[in-house]
């Protein structure tokens, strides 16, 4: 820890957190290393793979492309928070039932991104779901099962038969 370290206060999954962090610490490393919230994953570290996606003040962001010090005063939500509140329970169940995950590395961010996709576009068809998930890489499934799972949830939330 160098002299450049700063005090940062963040509301993480509803709980206030205060830590001293170096400016070069990314938000996702802060979550994983300092707060031991390891559900947000670190893949490419330059914004391409999407595995580090979290929500900051309600907006979907890349946790590797935001510095932890920039989140000072912000509300951060991770997969741990979304899973605990039950907000994405239907997506989680659909992923499990349709084998939309294998190794699970991309899954937390895929769930957050799917949730945002359906919030913005509740009637999304498979093509629009595929487009909305295009910034999240999965190296196991070939995406088909993921798209099916998200589409099933979209229909269910709209009250349509499966």
């Amino acid at each position: 820890m160098t002299d450049a370290a700063l005090d940062v206060g963040v509301m993480v999954n509803g709980a206030p957190v205060r830590r001293r962090v170096e400016p070069r610490r990314s938000l996702v490393d802060f979550l994983r290393e300092d707060l031991e919230l390891s559900g947000s994953h670190v893949g490419c570290e330059h914004g391409v793979c999407g595995a580090c996606t979290v929500r900051v003040d309600g907006a979907l962001v890349r946790g590797c492309l935001m510095l932890a010090v920039q989140a000072d005063g912000c509300r951060v939500e991770t997969i741990e928070g979304l899973a605990a509140t039950g907000e994405i329970l239907d997506l989680q169940q659909a992923f499990a039932e349709l084998n939309a995950l294998q190794c699970g590395f991309c899954t937390p961010a895929m769930l957050l991104t799917a949730q945002e996709a359906l919030r913005r576009d509740p009637g999304a068809d498979r093509a629009r779901i595929r487009q909305a998930l295009s910034g999240n890489y999965c190296r196991c499934t070939g995406y088909h099962a993921i798209v099916e799972a998200v589409h099933r949830v979209a229909r269910a939330r709209a009250g349509e038969p499966p």
């Binding site: 160098t2 450049a4 700063l6 170096e22 400016p23 070069r24 610490r25 990314s26 490393d29 994983r32 290393e33 670190v42 570290e45 510095l67 010090v69």
Partner: peptide, 11 residues
Amino acid sequence: MDAMKPAPFTY
């Protein structure tokens, strides 16, 4: 492991 990718800078 202490993950720090960028070189140090002041913020």
